[in-house]
Amino acid sequence: MSGNSFSGNLSKHLCYLKKLQLLDLSRNNLSNEIPTCLKNFTAMSKKSINSTETASLIYWYNDTYIETYGFTISRYTFNITVMWKGVKCGFKSPELRLNSIDLSSNDFIGEIPNEIVFLVGLFSLNLSRNNLSGEIPSEIGNITSLESLDLSKNHISGTIPSSLSQIDNLGVLELSNNSLYGRIPPGRHMDTFDGSCFEGNPNLCGTQLNKTCPGDMPEVKPEEPTRHDDADDNSDFYEALHMSLGFGFFTGFWGLLGPLLFWRSWRIAYLRFLNKVADYIYVTVAVYVAKFYK
């Protein structure tokens, strides 16, 4: 039912089609929120498909019909054309393993229903080119069969769930032109997607976008405080002491002998002083000795 002019809400009565495996309502004018009752698509919630049961439903005849009317009806050729992994593909007489939902290019608003994660047999989910907001369901990794996911050109915010990196079969991923932020989750095959899958999200970072995240900045270690070493203080003290002693000795020595060597009058006065001191000591000692023996 793609490429028509359907408008209004997506009818909740659609959810009664429990055996529906392929829903394509892309390129219409549908609006409002995506109903949460999509989880009632029982056929999409199973990882394995009963091919015999599916064929009996598709080709509108069964063994009871043949036994009743006594003749067989040849099968008609069942061909479908869908957008598969971003490419328009034709499938001839498929076994309907193509569990797919395509609601792209409409005017849906609101959040992606969390109930979508119960469709564990879903192979392709395309909700691109809408006005969806909110965050990607955190448990989207439960859809382990998912091979193609396109949520581009919406207003989806928040971080990319780490569970998305756990889907090993995911070959096509489009999250561009949204309001996602934070680090692109690493691990497994997430590093194989190029930057075009994530561009248009200014606050998104990671190796795919060649943009470092704040946590990737090299850690600047604080400078270690200068170690206070008592031995260094002691060496500085003794060095200053030796310098002061040397300076004192030089000053005292030349302060006394310098004038005596260069000025004759100072030498005479100095010698007279020494003679007086010597005479005084001699007389004092002589008097003391005389008194001692007297």
Score class of each variant (00 low, 15 high):
51 S>Q: 15
104 S>H: 05
85 K>G: 12
58 I>M: 11
36 T>I: 02
91 F>I: 08
113 P>T: 00
28 N>W: 02
71 F>L: 07
92 K>A: 05
45 S>N: 06
72 T>I: 05
86 G>F: 15
58 I>A: 07
73 I>N: 11
114 N>F: 00
102 D>N: 15
28 N>G: 01
53 E>V: 03
120 V>Q: 10
72 T>G: 06
88 K>R: 14
32 N>C: 08
107 D>N: 15
81 T>H: 01
37 C>E: 03
57 L>E: 14
94 P>H: 04
97 R>W: 09
73 I>Q: 14
72 T>C: 04
78 F>M: 09
54 T>M: 12
45 S>M: 03
83 M>G: 05
31 S>M: 12
73 I>D: 10
46 K>Y: 06
95 E>K: 13
110 G>H: 09
123 F>R: 14
124 S>D: 13
100 S>K: 09
66 I>M: 09
120 V>K: 14
95 E>S: 10
106 N>L: 06
122 L>R: 07
98 L>W: 10
76 Y>G: 10
64 T>F: 11
114 N>W: 02
83 M>E: 12
90 G>T: 14
69 Y>D: 10
117 V>M: 00
52 T>P: 07
92 K>I: 10
87 V>K: 15
106 N>D: 04
56 S>A: 11
91 F>Y: 15
107 D>K: 14
31 S>Q: 15
53 E>T: 09
104 S>T: 02
112 I>C: 00
60 W>F: 10
64 T>A: 15
101 I>R: 01
112 I>W: 01
39 K>I: 02
81 T>E: 11
111 E>I: 00
62 N>V: 00
40 N>C: 04
92 K>R: 14
98 L>T: 11
74 S>V: 07
30 L>D: 06
60 W>C: 08
57 L>Q: 13
38 L>R: 01
96 L>F: 05
107 D>W: 09
52 T>R: 15
50 N>Q: 13
115 E>H: 03
97 R>K: 14
101 I>Y: 00
30 L>E: 06
63 D>S: 13
91 F>L: 14
42 T>L: 07
107 D>R: 11
59 Y>M: 08
57 L>M: 13
30 L>I: 08
50 N>K: 13
116 I>E: 03
116 I>T: 01
88 K>N: 09
88 K>C: 03
34 I>G: 05
106 N>A: 02
124 S>C: 02
102 D>M: 01
39 K>P: 02
95 E>L: 08
62 N>Y: 04
71 F>G: 00
88 K>Y: 09
53 E>C: 05
81 T>C: 05
90 G>M: 10
123 F>N: 12
88 K>G: 00
109 I>Q: 06
48 S>P: 00
60 W>E: 15
53 E>R: 12
120 V>R: 12
113 P>M: 01
91 F>R: 12
87 V>N: 13
38 L>H: 02
81 T>K: 09
48 S>K: 13
90 G>H: 08
108 F>M: 06
